[in-house]
């Protein structure tokens, strides 16, 4: 299990957990609302030109750009293909 930021590009993975920073973490709440919940398949599609920030994540039918600090909240298990 590792952070979404460490996932190589175009590797299929499944979300295992979204870690909230503190009790009231609006970013974790919003991530969940956007579909970042345990069990969802995700894939990193692209990384930004400077320091790989932000990361572009495919989740469901949608692509979201997340900053590294946001993506680091998402813990994933890479699929052993």
């Amino acid at each position: 299990m590792h952070q979404l930021t460490d996932l190589p590009r175009n590797t299929n993975a499944t979300i295992s957990e979204v870690v909230a920073h503190g009790d009231l973490d609006p970013i974790a709440v919003r991530l969940a609302e956007l579909g970042f919940v345990p069990g969802e398949p995700v894939r990193v599609v692209a990384k930004g030109p400077v320091g790989g920030d932000p990361v572009l994540v495919q989740i469901g039918y949608t692509r979201f750009a997340l900053r590294r600090s946001e993506a680091a909240r998402v813990m994933v298990c890479a699929e052993t293909a």
Partner: peptide, 8 residues
């Protein structure tokens, strides 16, 4: 922290 969370 500032959020991005931008849909493409």
């Amino acid at each position: 922290e500032h959020a991005l969370l931008l849909e493409l």
